[in-house]
């Protein structure tokens, strides 16, 4: 593989690792604050699944980069401008419905994406994808069920679910540009993303219909996460996540 392709493969791994890392960190913010013990454990479980995936992607990225950075080096020693996650995952938790909206939109996309990644010819990415699919199938299912339960629940839960989707909707277009700027390596490993936007829109529409929710109105999408241009919400998340290893750089369990 040429240095240029290898660099793009690093970039792809970082994008995927950062998606998982940042969303995992967001979900863990619920720990101790969720509406019930059961939901508290559910959200933390989802978060920890994602942190596990982030470790695999970032470890691989570190190997590709070849500068001696491991998963921790990449997670804790980069600044906001170097993070390549999509804007959707860094959006604030809001209320429970807003968190569910974000998770539903993202994990529905993530599952479709991983199914394609599992068919590429990059052995490591394929292995990570196959392992992650089992976890993300559950994420997509449980978040869709909550969308339906809240949407088709009380007037208040319906409104909150609608507001949550409305907040997140301007960040969905960016999901379908994950390969932007690294098209060469995507083609090289055989990553075919041509059908997932349609599939995603169909799945989301079907769930919202069952949830008696209207599809949010189309709006101008906001982009930038993949090149490090983030919303104001990422900085505070990173400072919390990174404060301990940056203060005590030899800290250990």
């Amino acid at each position: 593989m040429s240095p240029q392709l290898k660099n793009q493969l690093y970039e792809l791994s970082v994008r995927l690792g950062d998606d998982a890392l940042i969303l995992g960190q967001r979900l863990c913010e619920w720990c101790g604050h969720a509406p019930s013990t059961e939901i508290d454990l559910t959200l933390s479980n989802l978060g920890l699944d994602l942190i596990g995936q982030a470790r695999h992607f970032l470890t691989y990225a570190g190997e590709l980069e070849g500068k001696g950075r491991d998963e921790d080096g990449l997670a804790f020693e980069r600044d906001a401008l170097d993070f390549k996650n999509c804007l959707l995952v860094e959006q604030p938790n809001g209320d429970f419905a807003q968190t569910i909206a974000r998770h539903f939109l993202f994990s529905t996309w993530q599952l479709l994406f991983l199914e394609q990644l599992a068919q590429t010819n990059d052995e490591t990415l394929r292995a990570i994808a196959r392992k992650s699919i089992k976890e993300i199938s559950y994420h997509a299912s449980i978040s869709a069920q909550w969308v339906i339960r809240l949407g088709d629940g009380t007037p208040e839960s319906h409104d909150r679910m609608m507001n949550g989707l409305d907040w997140m909707w301007r960040f969905v277009d960016e999901l379908f540009l994950v390969q932007e700027g690294i098209e060469d390596v995507c083609e090289n490993i055989g990553l075919d993303l041509s059908s997932i936007e349609n599939e995603w829109r169909n799945k989301v529409a079907a769930t919202l219909k069952e949830a008696t929710l209207d599809l949010p109105a189309d709006r101008k999408g906001i982009f930038g996460g993949r090149v490090g241009h983030h919303s104001e919400h990422l900085g505070p998340l990173l400072s919390e996540m990174q404060s301990l290893p940056r203060t005590y750089n030899d800290a250990n369990w």
Partner: peptide, 14 residues
């Protein structure tokens, strides 16, 4: 839980 699916999921996670 509000229904049996939610109860199964809560049990799984708990």
């Amino acid at each position: 839980a509000a229904d049996k699916r939610m109860a199964l999921e809560a049990a799984r996670d708990t």
